[in-house]
Amino acid sequence: MNSKKQIASSLALSVKKLTVAYHDTPVLWSIDVDVPAGSLLAIIGPNGAGKTTFMKSILGLLPTLAGSVSFLGLSAAHAAKSGAIAYVPQRMSVDWDFPISVEEVVMMGRYGSLGWFARPKQHDKEIVIDALRQVNLEALAQKPIGSLSGGQQQRVFFARALAQQAEVYLLDEPFANIDAATEQILVYILQQLAASGKTVLVVHHDLHTVRTYFKTALLLKNRKIAYGPVEQVVTSVYLDQAYGNRYYYTPPAISHSGGDPDYISPAGKVSSWGEL
């Protein structure tokens, strides 16, 4: 199962015209994003903008109305099977009373490459220990997950993703409800990953830290409002369109240093169904 192909294109993720609706309301409308390898991308937007929906639908966890998604030139299913994608879901999606240890959760990160039936080997155990070391949880490897704090739980999820040794990392609100120290460790790990050529996409909720943590940003409000270097996306022009006037953050004035002006896509109006 772990037939990691050569990276066919330099595009880690290519999304074309992704459209997702929930019952009878469109949540994502015709999203076009091309994410090159080595990106450290923040997906931001107000509540209900479709950020988590975006992440879940590119992974194939939600059905789409239209759009094609490819990871490294492969379809989502193929990429998942070949272990190229690591997904860190929201922490609340899991029952933390489950009777397993930290190490066993991180070992789940190796299951993708093991496939059905196979048992973990020594090689996998070494990778797991290494992942735990990276997030500073080596000492707690045997502890049941129920006794962990919020920050430790998030680090377990990180370690699981790191153990996958994937090319593309997708994280859903990893910094929600954790302490500052853990947040620093995790941001550092993400930045190291991006620096070594991996691609990192993060659904982020805090406007104050987007500029310092990330290099590029995708601003969503059901449509793609802006996508590009973070200094140019997180500016009042685009934030006003996305959040209305309801955000408490004063972005610095637009800087024209770095970033190609053509890289930013024109903002679209959120449409209703009645145009035809």
Binding site: K16, K17, P26, S30, L65, L276
Partner: peptide, 29 residues
């Protein structure tokens, strides 16, 4: 499904002037 498909094609034509039917499957998946 039908409505959104119409709308997407409409917007595409508005941006690009026209669209070839043969290209629609690959364009929209």
């Amino acid at each position: 499904r039908r409505k959104s498909a119409f709308q997407l094609v409409f917007e595409h034509i508005k941006l690009h002037g026209s669209v070839d039917i043969v290209l629609l499957p690959s364009l929209f998946g």
